[in-house]
Nucleic acid binder design. Structure first.
Lengths: 208, 208, 208, 208
DNA sequence: AATGAATGAGAGTTCATTCAT
DNA sequence: CATGAATGAACTCTCATTCAT
């Protein structure tokens, strides 16, 4: 599934231990960041020794990669579950966006890590992770295309998908600012309202 | 102006040396991040010895603070120069936003540093820096209020100001995605168009 | 035969497994040296698990001892097979020396290990191994004594035996130097010629 | 002079500290070998902190290289001082060899290190060091050529030079064997006697 | 005011060895 | 008898910081 090497043979044990590692690492990275978190702390938090940790990864950077990979996998799966590719109704569009905002609310810790630590991955891993991000923007873009087939050109769809994607992430990343002024509901509602207005305005302005 | 201690008496020398430090640090942080950059490297890049560096700061974190502080000061000054508080025309609104996007294009390195490294500041410094960010969003908000006095309520203005602010930063931060699809001009034009449409749609929908 | 403890009861299995261990270890030690070779690598090369390896030895040093012991045993057996204790002819002397040089050519890997790693044995094991080396020099000395009963005194015989012994080992150990200038045949022939000349010169000078 | 990098600027300090490092390392390597000696032990023995040690070298292997380089330099200088390139007398030949044996007696520790640890150098450094060894054999060869211009061909000279070189080293390396039977004087005298006999026998056998 | 040699706590990583299965 | 997951002491190396000059 992913390419991190381990000296352990049992695949189900690898998965179990790596999930422990990922959980511990996310919690520590969120508090202290990747660089200030030591491998020993991660091992301790995960409940095993430093030697055991290194049976399941090769370098500290592997842990960061596991974390990033796992975050995107989770976001993708949960978002995909909300998307019906054949449904072109406005209600479905709104529903997908709301689901995405709920998801981002849920994963605030993880989003912060992505923003701050991805740059510490080596180029190859970084490219892999950023491709995942592109894939997710594309998912949103396809929903837009389905629900507003005539109003927007390709560039406009991409831009809007990107804006939505960022607005979701920023709810958690800039919580020190946004979550004083807004509840999740008011934030979502306003953003969705602006969004639909600009799409529909676009649509009617084209007609004139 | 800022509270970093120095053992040097001459204030103009302090300012000169600190500017050298800031310039060197920004360039290094952008390449390698705060944690992977050593104080020795910063001193060398600035053209003096590690001993001299520590005459002008107390800890490595001080350097990060100097950098963040300087970035916001610069953004603020350049944006402020574009704002005419008495001009309520749509053209002026558009002009301010365009200026802000140009500025963000210019300061991509610095924006990346802000996003990734601010969390490494200690609480007190972080609060200080984030307050600066709030101030800047407020500047945009005031322009919106001036140019669209009736269309939007306070929360909506704040949200839009925040969206604009983020969209500007993301031009640089997500360049690996956006700068393949857009030029700065097409990005700006599209964002501004969506923005104005949603404001004006809001305005007319309220009237009905 | 040797005193390394094992938790396995079946002696023939012990011998079989230990021979696997020795073969793997020699090949790895030659490439990477004793310290850079891990017990895991030895077990893997031998075709069984690290747990099994430790059923047949107690410490990593045991492996080195097994290797050294096995090398000397092999050298001794092959050299002994060439020696006829009752033959006092010059031809037999030359034949023994040539056989010894062929043997050293064959065992270059092993000789290198002996030279470089014996010091890593603990005192007791080292003494045991060095005694084996003394025994082998003595074998050569006895052949000299048989073939040149009057020309040399005891010290001289020992010195020549030692010189021959070393010259054989150096053929492999200093191959980076010798094997560019000489073939095994030219090396042997020259060394034997010098050797016999100095013995015979000794003999005739004594007579004068 | 040598290419090991240091972050210290003062060259005379580098030389002083590196000599301390070399002295400490030789003493420790002789007792425990390169791999069992830790960098902390070397620093402690040299009288400074681990941090200071690493200001003067980059890796542990650098220390081994410094040691090997220094040993050869010393051997070379001391041997060169004994050689008069214009003197072709037998007495001079004998004198050079005796000087070389005294030297090897003096440097037993160092010779043992060379035999056992050179293989731990990376290829490039190893080639550099082995070239030095070749150079030293060549020095002996030139003395042979000067003193016995007609008796030996080039290959024979090389072989004898190599034999002498090894016999000197083995006095220390195999002291557990040789130094029980011989004093340095008796060892030297016997070896020189055999050597001269074989050269002179060669010379006269050629004439017949 | 400027220098840079010295420091040592602490980081990531390895690997011989054990022991429950 | 065989396995291999688990352990943690011990290793090499880094780097922010100090202070005598």
């Amino acid at each position: 599934m992913n390419s991190i090497l381990s000296s352990i043979k049992d695949p189900s044990l690898i998965e179990k231990r790596r999930n422990q590692i990922i959980r511990s690492a996310i919690s520590l990275f969120e508090k202290k960041g990747f660089h200030r978190t030591t491998t020993r702390e991660i091992a301790k938090e995960a409940g095993f020794s430093i030697g055991t940790l290194y049976e399941y990864i090769r370098t500290k950077e592997d842990i960061l990669f596991l974390v990033c990979d796992s975050i995107y996998l989770q976001v993708r799966e949960r978002l995909e579950a909300q998307i019906d590719p054949d449904n072109s109704s406005l209600a479905h569009f709104i529903n997908v966006i709301r689901s995405y905002f709920y998801l981002m609310d849920d994963m605030q810790e993880e989003v912060i890590i992505m923003y701050q630590e991805v740059k510490s991955l080596k180029k190859e891993s970084k490219d892999y992770v950023l491709q995942k991000e592109k894939d997710m923007v594309s998912m949103l873009e396809r929903v837009i295309a389905k629900c507003f087939p005539h109003s927007l050109n390709s560039n406009e769809r991409q831009l809007l998908a990107n804006n939505i994607f960022i607005q979701g992430q920023m709810w958690g990343f800039r919580r020190w600012m946004l979550q004083k002024q807004f509840t999740l509901e008011t934030y979502m509602d306003s953003q969705i309202q602006f969004l639909i207005q600009s799409i529909q305005a676009k649509s009617s302005s084209d007609k004139c």
